[in-house]
Amino acid sequence: MTVTPSRPVEPPRQAEPAERSPGRKDRRGDALVAALFVSPAMLAFTVFVIVPALGGLVLAFFEWDLFGTPVFVGLDNLARLFTDPAMWQALGVTALFVVLGVIPTTLVGFVLAVVVNVNMPGIGAWRVLYFTPMIASAAVSAIIWVNLYNGRSGLVNQFLALFGVDGPNWLADPTWALPALVLMMIWGALPIVIILYLAGLQRVPEDIYAAASLDGAGRWRQLWSMTWPNVWGTTVLVAVLQAVSFVSGSFEVALIMTDGGPLGTTQSLALYSYKVAFTERDIGYGSALSLFQLALIIGVVLLSRAIVRFRKERG
């Protein structure tokens, strides 16, 4: 028994203001107000984010051990990138982290947000449980997950044994270490995704559900045909944040739990850069690795946008 929605659902308009009124010129007054509104944030952002970021990246052209005087070495560090096999492996690991991490985190977070977005007695207390992974620091989470993943006595393998599966020694297995870390990172990332979607869901007009079906299958379809398009803006935000966190933010987890091993299979570019810069105290090359990563990301974004535009123009 499925009933299709009685009227098509129009997602809220999320286009850029600039695109919404392409012909209109900025009104002088508006531009002034906008500048006033934007400038405190941009001033702070420039001084404390952009300048330090450039300062860090410029070090790619220097040789520096943290304590001595930085020595200008031109393109030496950048040239070294292309002959370094560890760099290429780390690049692959970063790509895997993003592919395995971002999409599941986003989808599962969305579904869980819908699940807890409900008014029931005592729901508030239960909902708090969903936020708890975010509260634990990386070091504390690591202790817990190392226990869970242990090959012999860990709960994960004890659970698998119930089904007759002989689980691997997760964190020391070149095949399974990366998926194990991704699973843990998804766990840690879910709260922020759930919170963002919860906020997004509050802006979905309720009347779109009015005539929709009430049975299970219908609800599942309604979830993807009506709710999902209505939170698209949130999804974009979540995807960007998760991309940031899987590319660079979460290297801490791998550092504590596997130290990038075994055989470099969990060593992302960010972790490799950190180790080069601060363990081996070769800040210049560490910075070159980060610069390369940044260039690649900008390249991927520009390329994907070009493809989208190309398709639009053709279609």
Binding site: G55, A270, Y274, A277, F278
Partner: peptide, 8 residues
């Protein structure tokens, strides 16, 4: 956002 915090 894609510049690692430890570097900055």
């Amino acid at each position: 956002m894609f510049v690692p915090a430890n570097l900055t």
